[in-house]
Amino acid sequence: MSGTLVVAPTHGRSRVEAWEIDAREQVRDLVASYNALGDRGRFDDLLALFAPDATMDVGDGRTYVGVDEIRTIFTETRDSVRGGDHAGDGTGDKPPGPEYLQHHASTHVITVDGPESATGQAYFTVMTDAGVDHWGRYQDAYRVVDGRWRFASRRVRVDGTTPDGWADRRLSGDGEPTRTTGPERLLAEADIRQLVARYAVATDRRDLDAIVALFVPDVRVGRGSSGEPVVGRDALRENLAGQLAAIGVTILNVGTHQIDLAGPDDATGHVYCKAEVQDGDRWIHQAIRYDDRYRRVDGEWLFVRRIHRLFYGAEVGTNPVGLPPADWPNNHDGWGTIPADDETWQAFRAEHGGTPGGSP
């Protein structure tokens, strides 16, 4: 039994190695230390909890890379607290800031991938002297650095705020509450739906310039060969060109669209899409869900992130590839003239090649 501890079954397993129990306890202590040190303003000690090349995403459209950039998140929060009218007598130039912050983490789920790597997620609630201020989720990756568990990445998402509270005003960026109601909400939702529709049309036309213009300028595309973040519209254009050159005609039909406004300039959404895709000489139907994050930049709603998730993909009963030209409206079945007639489609194929579209 040396090195093994018998515990209650976990996810179908009856044995957990002693090193895994130790890893879980160290990770729990790591998350607790993050909250305690941050609330006390001990930022040097807090930053020591991160790997040197760690990343942090707090939902502002930017990924902070390395401890120096991550430090600015906490110093700006500190300045926001200190910058308020703590006297509450109207003499300050900003609404009252909280006297203190208390971060409480709960429901911490840890997945240990190995002796030196793990992931986790937890809920958090932030209290101030005025009561509950805001709440949300942590999504983490952890790894061992110099014998101690550290944050490899941390993603923070605020799910809700107390109206007119400190976070509610701060997230709006102008001292006003972040709630969006009435006509403003309707206009924002209409603009976001147009954003999603433009993405579908531009994709089907292979208009790469139009697609990348729908994303924030510093959109994160992925990571390079050495692990560095790859960002920007040029990188996105190159990535999309490779993906779209591998397939032929696409037809994206956008349907159900849930939009959740987090403030005047920030929102998330889930979009259902039924797609038809030419894959060589096959014709595929797909059911897709896009998980989106949007931000309004200079008055225009843009994608911050778009994740493509697949319910299924399957060949159709009648394959349109190989059908004779429809010569519509003389015939209602057969191969049509779009997207081959679109100039952007022609330009894309001339530059990137790939499966030909148009009349077989």
Score class of each variant (00 low, 15 high):
residue 247 I to G: 10
residue 152 A to H: 12
residue 67 V to F: 13
residue 142 Y to F: 13
residue 30 L to M: 01
residue 44 D to C: 01
residue 45 D to W: 00
residue 294 Y to R: 02
residue 59 G to R: 07
residue 1 M to Q: 07
residue 190 A to T: 13
residue 292 D to T: 03
residue 57 D to W: 11
residue 29 D to N: 09
residue 259 I to L: 03
residue 254 V to I: 11
residue 226 S to A: 15
residue 264 P to K: 07
residue 284 I to E: 05
residue 325 P to T: 01
residue 158 V to E: 03
residue 335 W to L: 13
residue 322 G to L: 05
residue 34 Y to C: 04
residue 18 A to K: 13
residue 146 D to V: 08
residue 18 A to L: 14
residue 331 N to I: 07
residue 109 V to Q: 03
residue 231 V to G: 08
residue 38 G to W: 00
residue 316 V to I: 07
residue 274 K to T: 15
residue 213 A to Y: 02
residue 277 V to W: 09
residue 78 R to T: 11
residue 240 L to C: 09
residue 75 T to S: 04
residue 230 V to W: 01
residue 143 R to V: 11
residue 245 A to I: 01
residue 333 D to W: 13
residue 75 T to W: 03
residue 344 T to M: 10
residue 111 T to S: 05
residue 113 D to M: 15
residue 103 H to E: 12
residue 331 N to H: 14
residue 197 A to R: 12
residue 139 Q to H: 15
residue 358 G to Q: 11
residue 77 T to A: 15
residue 265 D to K: 12
residue 153 S to Y: 02
residue 300 E to R: 15
residue 333 D to Q: 15
residue 322 G to Y: 06
residue 18 A to R: 13
residue 359 S to Y: 14
residue 79 D to H: 08
residue 190 A to Y: 06
residue 322 G to D: 02
residue 195 L to R: 08
residue 56 M to R: 13
residue 93 D to S: 14
residue 113 D to H: 15
residue 256 T to Q: 09
residue 53 D to A: 10
residue 105 A to P: 10
residue 298 D to A: 10
residue 159 D to A: 06
residue 11 H to N: 15
residue 109 V to L: 14
residue 9 P to W: 00
residue 282 R to M: 02
residue 294 Y to P: 05
residue 53 D to L: 09
residue 164 D to K: 11
residue 252 L to I: 11
residue 144 V to I: 06
residue 58 V to T: 11
residue 341 D to P: 03
residue 333 D to Y: 15
residue 275 A to T: 10
residue 250 T to I: 06
residue 191 D to F: 04
residue 37 L to E: 09
residue 211 I to M: 11
residue 59 G to S: 09
residue 44 D to S: 01
residue 261 L to I: 02
residue 20 E to I: 05
residue 245 A to V: 01
residue 324 P to F: 04
residue 110 I to Q: 05
residue 231 V to I: 12
residue 26 Q to S: 09
residue 204 D to L: 06
residue 165 G to F: 00
residue 287 A to F: 11
residue 10 T to D: 13
residue 95 P to W: 09
residue 292 D to K: 03
residue 186 L to N: 09
residue 52 P to H: 00
residue 144 V to H: 06
residue 100 Y to W: 15
residue 273 C to H: 03
residue 165 G to Y: 07
residue 321 V to R: 01
